[in-house]
Design a protein around this nucleic acid. Structure first.
Lengths: 221, 221
DNA sequence: CTATTGCGGAGCGAATCGCTCCGCAACTTG
DNA sequence: CAAGTTGCGGAGCGATTCGCTCCGCAATAG
C-alpha cells in the first residue's frame, strides 16, 4: 500500500463517514461544503469521487442497505431466534439506520438500491418469522412494525446534536443512554403484553416516501 | 369577534403550527419563508408578530413546555399511577415533543423557558416516583431516561416526511403506526424485565445541548 | 529527472437567507 | 356614508450559501 493510495482510501472513508454524520445532523439540507469540511478534505476531493451530490447520497444508501443486510444475515446465523433478532435491531439502530430518511424522495432510487432493499425485507421477514415460531417475539408485531421501529430509533437527536456541537466529551454517556433506550424498546417487543393498537402498518409507510411508483422495499436506508 | 380579529387569530395559530411542522421536517434549517408559505400567509404577517426568527422559536419553546407541563399535571391528576405516566408519555410523543431539539444551542434560553423546564422536570419526577412506588414502572428507569425516550419518539421521521411530501392520504395510517410504536415502548417500561444496561443518564444529556452554562432543565422542548 | 495524480480551496452563477417596507384592500369608527 | 386604521401579501434588499468547476501546486510514481 503506497502512501498515495493510503491517503486516498482514508479520504474515501472519511468522506463517507462525514456524509453520514452531516446527513444525520442536518437532514436533507446537508451541504457538500459541510460534508467536505467535516471530512477534513477539500471540495475537489469530494467531486473527484462523486459526480454529483445525488451520486454521493446514492452511494450512502447502498452502503446503508449493505449494512442492514449483513446484520440480518448475522442475526439469522445466530441459533437463538431472540438473540438473532435483538442483535439485528441493536446493530441497525447503533449504525444509524434511518439517517438517510430525510433524503427520501429527493434522489432517484437506483435498481441496485431497490434490489438490496427487497433483499433486506426478505431477511427481516425471516428473522421475524422464526422469532414468532419460537414464541419469543410478541405475535402481533410485524416486519414493517420492526422496520419503522428501527427507523424511529436509528436517528438519535441526542447523539446527532452532541456531534454537531462537537461535544465529544458527552458522547460516551450519550451512547450509553441510547443503549438503555434500545433495551427498553427490545423489552417491549417481548410477548406477554396486551395487543398493540390498530392494524399492522403496510409497506406504503416506506414506499410512499422513497419511490411512490417503484417496488422499493421497506428498509429505511 | 370581528372578522378582522378572527382572521388575525387564525393566522396566529396557523403560523405557530406551521413553524412547528417545518421545524420538525427541516430541523434547524427551517426557513421563515417555508414557515410563512406553510401557514398560507405572507412573510410580513410573520414579522408583524415576531421581531426575529429567534423570537418565534422562543415562543414555540414556551408553548411546547406549557404542553409538557399540562400533560404532566393531567398525568398526576389520574388516580392510576401507570395510566397517569403512560398518558403523559403518549400525549407528549403525539404532540411532537422534541421537534424543537434541532434548535438547541442556536437560540438564547430565556428565563421563562428555564423556569418552565425546571417545573417540567419536577412534575416528571413526581410521575416517575409514584409509578415506582406503585410498582408499575421498571425500577431501573429514571426521569431522565423517560425524557430522552420522549424526545426520541417525539420526532417521527415517518410523519414528518409524509407531511413534507404532502402525502395527507397516508397520514392516518402513519399516526396509527406511530401509536403502535408508542405502545411497544410503553410496554418496555413495565417492570419484570432484566436490568437496563449501564448507569442512568445525567441531566447534562439536555443541559449540554440547550445551554451549557444555565440551569436549563431537561425537558426536551 | 519528468510525468502523473490527487490535493485544497477560490470563485462562478444561481439560489436562498432573514428581514424591511410598500401598495392595497378590508375593516372599523364616527 | 366617508375617512381613518390596520393587517394583508409579497417584492426586493444586501448578505450568505448553494452545487460545482477548475486552477496551481506539491507529493508521489516510474
Amino acid at each position: 500500500m503506497t502512501p498515495r493510495k493510503d491517503l486516498a482510501e482514508r479520504n474515501d472513508r472519511a468522506l463517507l463517514q462525514a456524509a453520514r454524520d452531516v446527513l444525520a445532523e442536518d437532514g436533507a439540507h446537508a451541504s457538500v461544503a459541510a460534508i467536505a469540511a467535516r471530512a477534513g478534505v477539500g471540495i475537489g476531493s469530494l467531486y473527484r469521487r462523486y459526480r454529483t451530490k445525488e451520486e454521493l447520497f446514492q452511494r450512502l444508501s447502498v452502503l446503508s442497505l449493505d449494512h442492514w443486510n449483513r446484520a440480518a444475515e448475522e442475526g439469522l446465523a445466530d441459533p437463538d431466534p431472540w438473540a438473532g433478532l435483538a442483535g439485528f435491531v441493536r446493530s441497525c439502530v447503533e449504525f444509524g439506520q434511518g439517517s438517510l430518511a430525510p433524503i427520501a424522495g429527493t434522489i432517484e432510487v437506483t435498481e441496485e438500491m431497490s434490489a438490496k432493499s427487497r433483499r433486506g425485507d426478505e431477511l427481516l421477514r425471516d428473522l421475524v418469522r422464526r422469532a414468532h415460531e419460537a414464541g419469543v417475539l410478541r405475535p402481533d408485531v410485524t416486519a414493517v412494525d420492526i422496520s419503522l421501529l428501527i427507523e424511529q430509533m436509528g436517528r438519535s437527536p441526542l447523539v446527532d446534536q452532541l456531534r454537531k456541537q462537537a461535544r465529544d466529551d458527552l458522547l460516551p454517556a450519550a451512547f450509553e443512554a441510547r443503549r438503555r433506550l434500545i433495551a427498553i424498546v427490545l423489552d417491549g417487543l417481548r410477548p406477554g403484553r396486551p395487543a398493540l393498537p390498530g392494524s399492522p402498518p403496510g409497506e406504503e409507510m416506506f414506499t410512499g416516501r422513497w419511490a411512490p411508483d417503484a417496488a422499493a422495499g421497506t428498509s429505511p436506508a
